[in-house]
């Protein structure tokens, strides 16, 4: 199966002083894939995602996103990606409708298409009743799905999700993953970071980051086979242990 490659990195590195937050990571993501980025807090997930979406400049290494060079064609990349952060960033003092209009506006969508999309999103997310109340008053689960809808408003090729389910209960989390699957079925590539191991199972492929490096990268099933365990949780624990052993050997 020859799939189109939409994200490709080669030894991408970000250093803060002497500390390498992201240390020479190389991977490829293909179109329509749900690519999970796992790791403990501080493993470098967020730094990696920030480099890919242009919020942080890499120290060294190469990368292309949506076929464009990360250093030289940032503006083109920006139009083709969507981003949702762990804060479900919407404007709390604006209503869902106003949020959609605003983000549609800054992505230069036409007035007509903004109107259509607004209607579509409000109906689909069952937000019609609260369309004119400030976002701050609607429940977190709704807010999260609205944030996702807003992040994909301009029909991006790739959607970057930075811990999109933080602080949300499991029930809502599952609902949210249904939304992600739907987007993937529609041909969107999803790049998602998480530290929930159960969520890892939902991804097509996952890379596990430990101390700035990619320690493992494969489908959830093959990873489990490879480590001879039952769940992703155990994969992760084994990986971290192994890494700790090697680093302690080095320091000795």
């Amino acid at each position: 199966m020859s799939r189109e490659i939409v994200i490709k990195t080669d030894a991408l590195t970000k250093k803060f002083g002497d500390f390498a937050a992201v240390d020479e990571i190389s991977f490829e993501v293909t179109k329509g894939e749900i690519f999970g980025f796992l790791g403990a807090n501080g493993a470098g997930k967020t730094t990696a995602i920030k480099m890919l979406i242009g919020l942080s400049r890499p120290t060294s290494g190469e990368a292309t996103v949506a076929g464009y060079d990360l250093y030289k064609e940032t503006e083109r990349i920006k139009k083709r990606i969507g981003y949702m952060s762990q804060k479900f960033s919407l404007y709390n003092d604006l209503t869902p409708q106003e949020n959609i209009k605003f983000f549609g506006g800054i992505y230069s969508l036409s007035r007509k298409s903004i109107k259509e999309k607004t209607q579509e999103i409000l109906e689909k997310l069952d937000l019609v009743d609260v369309a004119n109340t400030p976002v701050s008053t609607i429940p977190l689960g709704w807010k999260q799905r609205l944030a996702f809808a807003v992040a994909t408003l301009h029909d991006p090729e790739i959607v970057f999700l930075d811990e999109p389910t933080g602080g949300v209960d499991p029930m809502v989390r599952r609902q949210f993953w249904e939304t992600i699957y739907e987007a993937s079925d529609n041909g969107k590539t999803i790049f998602v970071t998480t530290h929930y191991m159960d969520e890892a199972e939902y991804c097509h492929r996952i890379s596990i980051m430990v101390a700035g490096k990619i320690a493992a990268l494969d489908t959830p099933d093959s990873l489990k086979k490879q480590f001879e365990v039952e769940s992703m949780d155990e994969v992760f624990v084994k990986l971290v242990r192994r890494n700790e052993n090697t680093t302690s050997k080095i320091s000795k």
Partner: peptide, 13 residues
């Protein structure tokens, strides 16, 4: 604080 600055910076603005 809200995290919306990131969203704006990721946008084509």
């Amino acid at each position: 604080e809200q995290g919306t600055m990131e969203i704006l910076l990721v946008s084509p603005l």
